[in-house]
Every structure is written in C-alpha cells, then in structure tokens.
Design a protein around this nucleic acid. Sequence first.
DNA 1: GCCAACGTTGGC
DNA 2: GCCAACGTTGGC
Length: 228
Amino acid sequence: MPPRKRARVTRRTSNPGKDDDDDGDGETISPVKETVPKKKTTRKAKEVSEPPASPQYCRWLMKSEPESRLESGVDMKFGIEDLKALPDQTDCWDGVRNYQARNFMRQMKEGQVAFFYHSNCKEPGIAGVMKIVKEAYVDHTQFDKKDVHFDGTSKADNPKWSMVDVQYQRMLKRFLPLSELKKYHLQHRAKSGPLKDMALFTRARLSVQPLTTEEFDFIVSLEDEEPL
DNA sequence: GCCAACGTTGGC
DNA sequence: GCCAACGTTGGC
C-alpha cells in the first residue's frame, strides 16, 4: 500500500463499551426477506451463529473528499484522480469509523464494483468506478497513534475497524452530480423507479453504502443521457 | 460558514 | 434502556 494515506470519511473513536456488534448491519433497506428455517428437530442449531441473513449486495458506493481540507493538520483530500495516480491505481480504503459502513465493507467480495463518490466539495456526485481487489482486513491506522483515525479503544487482539483495497477502473463518461441524481430520486419516489430508495438519499451520512443492481445499472445508463 | 440530520456517549 | 447533550457528516 501506498505511503501516506489520507483518510476518508467517518472518523470517530468509539469506546470499549458497546463495540462490536458483529455484522449485522442493521438495516431497513433489506430488499430481500429471509425466511428463517426455524423448524426441524433433526437439525440442531446449525453451525454456530449464522451469518446474519442479510440481503447480499454486490454493488457499492464509497465516498471520499476530492478537495483539500485539514483535519488535525492532515489533508483529507483523496479524490478519484488521486486513486488513479497511485501505483497500480490501487489503495486501501482506510479510516472508516462507522459501524454500518464497516459492516458493508466486510460484505464486499473481490471483483465487485463500487462508485467513487466525491463528497463535501464544490460539486458532489459520482465520478467513476472502482473495483474491490482485496476483501476486508484489519485497518492498521486504528493502531497508529500518529494517524488521524487512531482509535485507542481498539485492541490488537480484537481489531475494531476494517478496510478493503480498491482499484481504479474508469471515469464515468460524464460526472453525475448529486443534484441530478436527486432529481431522479424524487421522480422515482413519486412514480416509482430504480432510484426511489437509493441509500445516498435515504441514509445520507453513510460513507459506504450498497446499491441494488437496478440502481447501479440505472446510474450507469445515465452516462449516455443528457444531463437532466 | 451554516446548520439539519443523525450517530455516539454517558448520566440516570 | 431512555434520552439529552454532543460531535460529525456533508449539502448548500
């Protein structure tokens, strides 16, 4: 991994008390309902604790700030151009300090794709596409006292935070501004369309969020449309 | 720079 | 376990 990483997104040092909530990702967004096979006397508790029956997503959206902003003296800037400029155009997505976002990263599988979203900037929106090239592993910055995202409550034998590696794939043919996505979202909410429940609007502050394939495909199709 | 939305903390 | 205070995210 590259030398100096700026962080992205959610920081927050949490505390020992309530940590680990495994993974469930409490969600309200679940597209798929799961019927729990409760019956059966023959089967005992299946394996240990179940991997929570969460719907499995395979498309993602990840936010990062493309413009300079100092946080504790450290520049948080990391836009898609910065990812593209790295060796192998690959980087680890460190610094996520929000349980829901972390849990989504833990669900990511190698080869899946994610939108690179530019947040907290002049023109927020989706800039391009990247690919997950390494599944969730320990985010080392939680143990680095010098890092902005150091978390003193995380223990080496039970690390709290994870990250994945992402690789630049391509820019979108045109930048898709949040304002445009929002128009579609409102339209689709009124008439029912693919973006009616998009997490970008229903869970505004989530820095790592899932997309259904319908949402993803619709958004990609906008590349060839005139700006709304 | 403002501030609404919302996650986290911690007293009780 | 409730909930008020607090801190952060991120659009505008």
